[in-house]
């Protein structure tokens, strides 16, 4: 099998670029910890409240330390449960101060959902039986739309919320 001289040059540059991509991705993933979420944490989808984070009183934003927050959410067809406010009304809006470290923890008691804070890297599949987790720092103030981006049924497009990053 004969390769033209130029094809050899082409393959060296082409494969070289792919290797470059892999080195950058590998450095980010294994040294900087920017893997896509993959905790493999198991939960009983029929009884998510057995898991502390998903008890009704623990849902929504919790400040755990100075500049450190945890956000617990139960995603079910067709609603994100962010917990309730002081009057017992369902929350649809999350607020996080700018520059905080935020850990999102989400699970589903029914079908597969998505969780995307649109315009950020917080983008996860939410599957029954697993806890989806992602830690991030939200640096840019503004209002972000939270959307379910995995088809979950006829009300899929009505499954949303908002997250405000404030100064």
């Amino acid at each position: 099998m004969h390769l033209h001289k130029y094809e050899k040059i082409w393959l060296v540059f082409g494969i070289g670029s792919l290797i470059l991509f892999m080195v950058i991705l590998g450095y980010g993933a294994f040294w900087k910890g920017t893997h896509p979420q993959s905790h493999g944490q198991i939960i009983d989808p029929n009884n998510v409240e057995a898991y502390d984070a998903f008890k009704p009183e623990n849902l929504g934003v919790t400040k755990v330390d100075e500049g450190r927050y945890v956000v617990n959410i139960v995603a079910s067809a067709f609603n994100y449960d962010f917990g309730v406010d002081d009057e017992g009304n369902a929350l649809k809006h999350l607020r996080i101060p700018k520059g905080s470290n935020v850990l999102f923890q989400i699970t589903s008691p029914d079908v597969v959902h998505g969780f995307n804070v649109a315009g950020t890297n917080v983008n996860m599949m939410v599957e029954p039986g697993y806890v989806s987790k992602m830690e991030t720092v939200l640096d840019t103030p503004g209002e972000y739309t939270i959307v379910c981006n995995e088809y979950c049924g006829v009300g899929h497009h009505l499954m949303f919320g908002t997250l405000e990053v404030y100064e």
Binding site: G114, N116, A118, G119, V147
Partner: peptide
């Protein structure tokens, strides 16, 4: 790239600027 989801019927997502 601006975050718009796939496989979704028309929705204003509560009227956010992004939507």
């Amino acid at each position: 790239l601006k975050g718009g989801p796939r496989r979704s019927e028309f929705s204003e997502y509560g009227g956010t600027a992004q939507a």
